[in-house]
Amino acid sequence: MHKLRTIIVDDEPLALNLLRAKLNKVPEIEIIAECKNGREAIEKTMDLAPDLIFLDIQMPGVDGFGVIKKLQSDIVPLVIFTTAFEQYALDAFDVHAVDYILKPIDEERITRAVSRAIVRFETEEETEHKSRIIGAIDTINERENSASSSQSSQGQSSLGQNKGNLEHKIIIKDRDDITLLKQADIEWVDAAGDYCCVHAQGVTHIKRSTLKNLLDDLDPSIFKRVHRSTIVNLNYIQKVIPHTKGEYFLKLGEYDQVKVSRNYRDVIKDFLSDW
């Protein structure tokens, strides 16, 4: 029997202890790490490459959604959220096939979620995990701000008329806000299906766009594709770390680390040869 290598994450010690105790009774689960915040969850996921993560949503600092946004699509494991969210958010999870356990946690809900995780582990591509979650987040944001959607569309239309003056900026509609993001501030971009996670100045913006379309709008002299799902701004590379099988990791800031696949390693070699 294959055991799912699992990380559990919750900022409340009692909740973490309860989750551990219940998962220890599930023979298909092997707990390999416990984390008390989002930063630890990101670091442990990068280091240990788990099969599954039980992830609390409401945490100070980097919350559960923030953890997913910060990870490249092929690094995101299967995710089961533990949450006390309202029903409208759970409806969005159901639509996008995102697994969750409502708090207070009971063994029946854990058993059901683990059974689903085993099936998905055996049948799904890794890149599907992040795409489903980002889609659910986008749906939640839309429902929270449905009353102001007409005003948002009017503002976006007005900005579109002046697009000729915005060649060095990216337009991102996030909830009822429209952000004009300077390209120079963008550190890296990760694709998740029909969405892109645009990471800039410690904030992750969700933009509805394919990676190819977004790449066409970015300055090709500083933005390079380093993975089938990832673009980096060369100006933010702080360290290049060799990895196995000809791959690399790029350290882009205090917390962000991006994997370079073998197919794109020449991009980094050319970048290093210019120094």
Rank of each mutant, 00 (worst) to 15 (best):
Y248G: 05
A84S: 15
L234H: 11
T204S: 09
D190T: 08
R225Y: 00
A136I: 01
L19D: 02
D63K: 07
C197Y: 08
I118R: 06
E28I: 03
Q151V: 04
V119S: 08
D63F: 05
A136N: 04
R208F: 09
C35L: 12
K207S: 13
R20F: 06
N263E: 15
C35K: 07
R112H: 10
Y195D: 10
I75G: 01
I7K: 06
L18S: 08
S149D: 09
G246E: 03
Y100I: 01
I29P: 02
R20Y: 13
L52Y: 07
Q72D: 12
I268T: 01
R208P: 02
A191P: 02
E30W: 06
E167S: 11
I231S: 01
E125A: 12
I53M: 15
L23M: 12
D216C: 05
I186A: 03
Q183P: 04
I241E: 10
L102D: 05
S221L: 13
E40F: 07
R5T: 06
Q161H: 14
L211C: 08
A117V: 01
K259C: 05
G66S: 08
I42Y: 10
M59N: 05
A97P: 00
A89K: 07
I31C: 02
D106W: 13
F223A: 12
G193Y: 10
E122R: 05
I231K: 00
I42T: 01
R225A: 02
I80E: 00
Y195G: 04
L166H: 08
L48M: 14
I80T: 06
L52V: 02
T82I: 03
K163R: 12
S152I: 05
F54N: 00
G160H: 14
F249C: 07
S209E: 13
D174Q: 11
